[in-house]
Amino acid sequence: MIRPGLRLVEQVMGTAISLDLADDLPPPRLRELAGDVFAWLREVDARFSTYRADSEVCRFDRGEVLLSEASADLRVVLERCAELWGATDGFFDVYVTGRLDPSGYVKGWAAQVASDRLVAAGAPNHCLNAGGDVRVRGHSASGRPWRIGVRHPWDGSSACLVLTGTDLAVATSGVYERGQHVLDPRRGAPATGLRSVTVVGPDLGVADAYATAAVAMGMAGIGWLDRLPGHLHAVITDDARCLHSTRLPLLTG
């Protein structure tokens, strides 16, 4: 039996973006929707990448673009990043490396915007995975709520938790994939203590920023996540303990 919908993978933003459209729409329409999504993500990459010297972010960082001349998207992103800097007590810091690097928010934000646009365009059942940050809506092509595995921190071929839901933004930050790359902005040193932090919430960009901030906090991040309103979490510590919200939508049975 051929499932309805369309599944595509594309390398954008230096990582793989997987799109799963589960709506039973005509194939040309699905390809058009998917094309819009990837076009948007490529556009975001061209404007927000810190690896491209001609991107808007880099030009803004060098002072070649004033804030008043920046695009509306860049201003929105900078404003949200400033809010998140305050909300995370300074642990989510786009200037932690000394240069402007909003990538920790941009990837989740771009995926969230793409998902919102898909809903507005009449595709309310989809799953968008932007390099490990997942936004799911509705149901999968098999008609059940989406099932999102959380990657096992020590074994990339297995999942250690399985979440399920019809409207979730699931963002995971960890130090296992690219080494100790999350810096504690207060000490300027790589953060230790938490190996993987998954935050579940309504907005993927915010969830991604919260997860990154919690990793930067280290063990103190567990208590901080506990008091975070409107978000659920799952934490795996360096000594392989797993802690999670009691209301986390785990797949059972």
Partner: peptide, 13 residues
Amino acid sequence: ADLDTVSGATATS
């Protein structure tokens, strides 16, 4: 058969 997607730390290509 069970999972639709996997959330994890950002992987390189």
